[in-house]
Amino acid sequence: MSEHATDPIERAIAISDREFRELADFAPVMIWRAGVDKLCDWFNKPWLEYTGRAMEDELGNGWAEGVHPDDLERCLAIYVGAFDAREPFSMEYRLRRRDGEYRWMLDNGAPFYREGHFAGYFGSCTDVSAHRDAQRAQRILINELNHRVKNTLAVVQAMAIQSFREDQSVAHSLAVFESRLRALSAAHDLLVARAWEDVALRGVVEATVAPHDPNGSLVSLDGPPLMLSPEAAVSVAMALHELLTNAIKYGALSVAEGRVSLGWHYEPERHMVRLEWKESGGPAVEPPVQRGFGTRFIERVLAAQAGGTAAVTFHPDGVHCFFEASARARSMEPLDRLVDA
């Protein structure tokens, strides 16, 4: 039908059809049309530019050559089923882009009618790969958040059990529990600053020790640059908090002459770091009759959370402790990534 047709109605239809195609070619979506025989007879310019194929290649069932083989059967079943029922459809499938990459498309189709008679289907497609990636990332994030919340609650529960004991006053137990909560909060602040990515072991150690040794003269640190997972970082920080609290109250840091050495070395075959805490110069130490709640907290709870083992021993010259945690060697990152939060 030509726009030069003499009949006004025919001329209007011809002009409308031409203007629709021009408009469709400027639309921000990919548009297709199929006739009553289910075969596609037209695609707009965005579709052809996206697939990198000519109109004649896409006509009929040619467009199906670009659908991912794993999606084709499902795609055709939905298309044919909706077509036979004269119902709209919406489906997602992967379509090959002009560069060869398969991208997820959202395809919406609906029947159209002319003068009351079924004339075929119009459909539009949009690339939803980024949306699907975002949804997948959100699911991963939610699962990871659930995992971390459960781990944190397990630590808090263990802290409460270890802090509130029948042989201690409520006030003392509450003070101990609050101190541990503050330490746990400080450890989480460190992780938040790093967006819950792996953190530098030295940064965790220095941030935990600093409030108790602001001048850096009481606790000496020595060890290679390593990275800890968020879970291991929290456990290391909490273990050091327990050791520092005990050292300040009863151990080496309770006297001016006392000192602590904290060193660590990496065991690459196990992907583990072994931290060693040694006190010296403090009051003489006698092994306790029973393991204290702080010791049990380190050995039974925190080490398990860190994926390793721990042991606290009481030598005459001071408390010794080794603590293992999963770790990895630090890669060569940009300097701004290595600054400890």
Rank of each mutant, 00 (worst) to 15 (best):
L181Q: 15
Q168F: 13
Y121C: 06
L191H: 04
S129W: 05
G123V: 04
H172M: 10
G116P: 03
S124V: 07
L174T: 14
A187M: 06
Q168S: 14
L141Q: 03
A171T: 11
V176L: 09
S129E: 15
E144Q: 14
N151P: 00
R194T: 00
A175F: 09
G120H: 01
A175L: 08
Y121Q: 06
T152H: 04
R180A: 06
R182Y: 03
A154I: 00
L190D: 07
Q138N: 12
V156H: 01
P111D: 11
A130T: 13
Y113C: 04
Q138W: 10
Q168I: 00
E144K: 10
A130S: 12
A175P: 01
G109W: 11
F112H: 12
H188E: 11
N108E: 12
L191M: 08
T152K: 09
H172T: 11
V128Y: 07
L184V: 12
P111V: 15
L184W: 03
N151A: 15
V128M: 06
R132F: 08
L153D: 14
Q162G: 04
A175Q: 15
A187T: 05
A134Q: 10
L181F: 02
L191F: 09
A171N: 06
F164I: 13
A160V: 09
S163N: 03
D133P: 00
V149R: 10
H188L: 08
D127L: 07
I142N: 04
V170E: 09
A130Y: 13
R148P: 03
H188W: 03
S163L: 05
P111A: 07
L145I: 09
G116A: 15
V192D: 00
S173H: 00
R180W: 12
R132Y: 05
V192I: 08
E144L: 09
A187W: 04
R180E: 09
E144P: 01
S163M: 03
R139N: 06
F177G: 05
A183C: 07
E115Q: 15
I140H: 15
A137V: 06
G109Q: 09
S185A: 12
S124L: 12
R136M: 12
H131T: 07
A186L: 07
Y121V: 00
E178M: 10
E166L: 10
D127P: 02
G123L: 01
M159D: 01
T126K: 08
R136A: 11
K150P: 01
Y113E: 11
R165H: 04
Q157Y: 03
A110S: 14
D127G: 06
G123R: 02
V192W: 01
L184Q: 12
V176N: 04
R182T: 08
D107C: 05
R148M: 10
M159I: 01
L191G: 08
Y121S: 00
A175E: 13
A186Q: 13
E115L: 12
R132P: 02
E115P: 06
E144S: 14
I140A: 15
